[in-house]
Design a protein around this nucleic acid. Structure first.
Lengths: 339, 339
DNA sequence: ATATAAATTGAATGCGTATTCAGTATAAAC
DNA sequence: GTTTATACTGAATACGCATTCAATTTATAT
């Protein structure tokens, strides 16, 4: 007579394996967990593995999580889509986190207001740690997470005066490099196109850029704001180049914006780059190196940043280090033909 | 005397809430679950919510998953990074899945060989459904997942003769549109640059393109292969434009490749586009519309595809429809100045 | 006021696994 | 061959929640 279980493909549990192998559930569990499978006699282990294969058993990670408190899941909180730079980060993180045997549960903060809701979810899902790239993150929220025993790593987001693991490239420094470079090239009349939302990253770029220029006695600055995309960059570029006092160089706080500016300069104002107008961006996205742009920009070493983040995560998961790690990575100016 | 629990910030459970509110754990559970909180008397509900807030209780989703069999997690399996098109897909999926109250656990298939391992993991994590975009997916593997009671939706990947939910844009049709267009424009000598890996998508494009051209008695074709990126496109373009029989039009099976080809044509061969050389791509990534390229291409309506996928997922999760849904979406030719 | 139906509640149980603890079998030592 | 140490094993339990079932309270009908 056919067993009804066979018909309704019931979930296969360790108990089923145990029955089939003629051992206890404990033994089955040990086979799938013991360090080198050493705690179980070879004969029993063989029987268990055979039985498991025959009935298609796979350990249930949710149940295991319930039992051990380890879910094998790392949370990744990202902000609203900020172009290819952040897309690439997600992609790399997923890959690297998988390589250390964990899986990546992604949380997106669609609007800044909703970040509290997202934080609640992160906690509820019992992730083993969280990497946060969302700029909307505040001190209070990070602390809420940590007070629930979930370690946090801030990625490319620095919150001053807070005891949280952080990996970031100092925007003050990056923007400073840009100012130095433009000064070297003899520019006096400089345009500045920034991201229209006032993220901390954005404000730091501004501080770095302006304070450095002031050192060189450069004060003639025209400003515009733009969204984090090509189209708005194009429009912002047009506004900046129209009318009096058109600058001889423009610094855009994102490559995407810079590319829009380059195109409007060429198409609508017939400017040669860099002879008539120098452009410099930020992020060093892949496209910046393309022949159509050859955009000078500030490189953020994503690979290195992610590698460091993973390193911190591994330390956390092994409960090795209790100290907070703050890793500052130096931005690098990439000089291409746009300046 | 201070309770030790307070010192070691022990996890707060529904039991703790129950004790503090003077009700049973069942009642606490009901407060956080009943449809409109209706099954519990207002007075009791109020007490429970107050107690929960006071001690910072949050339902443990892992435990809930254990109890209900619903993890609230949807798996998303993606292949090796194939540029901005797929990055955008991940990003959109995460957002939309979150909107239907689920969370997205991302699995990346780093190499085709490892897809079996990934599939195992997907099953182990007890996801409620899986969306698969990885081209390495085979019939057998999809069936393995489904035999574990996990519904599958194939995204932009068609496996013939299989009973699996599918949403895709027919590459045969898309490539056919390109052939028609080039024929209309009078091109006879056409170049074809394809992705170097033999994915099913790629093969279908080839079938669609060639069969249509044959109808127009066009046989003069030069071929090259390229990786899914700008640099290799640039190189492939150079190879194609060197020597005899340089084509008057080139079809690249990805926009990224097409952009590389456009740049090499302009920079190294001094060709005007489209006067000397027409270029057409595939995918309609954001950059295709940029002034520097204005690339004609085949638009894949990502939003519509994802919306349809989410619709199918919702049906699955509500256990509404048991029928397999196969949704074919029509590709759209976008004509810009590159042809 | 009484009988009956409906709403609310709590005790007990299960979900699938890891783990503790005690017992049993095996190996080592004498 | 006996004693002692060691390697295995299984029964029982906990993890945090949802849910069933029976008991109790409250509302409705008579």
């Amino acid at each position: 007579m056919i067993q009804p279980e066979a018909l309704f493909n019931k979930t296969v549990t360790s108990k089923d394996v145990a029955k089939r192998a003629g051992v206890s559930q404990s033994t089955v569990s040990r086979v799938f967990n013991s360090p080198q499978g050493s705690e179980v006699k070879p004969a029993a282990k063989k029987k268990v593995l055979a039985a498991a294969r025959e009935i298609g058993y796979r350990p249930n990670l949710v149940a295991r999580g319930m039992s051990t408190g380890k879910t094998n899941v790392i949370g990744l909180v990202v902000g609203d889509s900020l172009g290819p730079f952040y897309n690439q980060i997600i992609n790399n993180f997923v890959e690297k986190i998988q390589e250390i045997g964990k899986q990546c549960l992604v949380f997106k903060v669609p609007r800044q207001e909703q970040i509290d809701v997202i934080i609640e979810r992160v906690i509820q899902f019992q992730v083993e740690a969280v990497v946060i790239t969302a700029s909307a993150m505040t001190k209070v929220m990070a602390e809420t997470i940590m007070s629930n025993d979930i370690p946090v790593v801030l990625f490319n987001r620095f919150i001053p005066g807070v005891d949280i693991n952080t990996v970031y490239v100092n925007p003050v420094e990056g923007a400073g490099l840009v100012a130095e470079f433009l000064h070297e090239k003899g520019h006096k009349n400089i345009g500045y196109i920034q991201f229209k939302r006032e993220t901390s990253e954005e404000m730091e770029k501004k501080i770095g850029f302006y304070s450095k220029l002031r050192q060189y006695d450069i004060f003639q600055l025209k400003e515009e704001k733009s969204g984090y995309n090509y189209e708005e960059g194009y429009e912002a570029g047009r506004r900046m180049l129209c009318g009096e006092h058109a600058p001889s160089a423009i610094f855009c706080t994102s490559d995407l914006i810079a590319m829009g500016v380059m195109d409007v300069a060429k198409k609508e104002f017939n400017l040669r780059i860099p002879e008539d107008l120098a452009i410099i961006g930020y992020d060093d996205i892949e496209m910046s190196a393309w022949k159509a742009y050859e955009l000078s920009t500030v490189h953020q070493p994503i690979e290195k940043m992610i590698a460091k983040t993973i390193e911190i995560l591994e330390g956390i998961l092994k409960r090795e280090n209790n100290e907070t790690i703050v890793e500052m990575i130096k931005p690098v100016l990439v000089k291409r033909s746009s300046v």
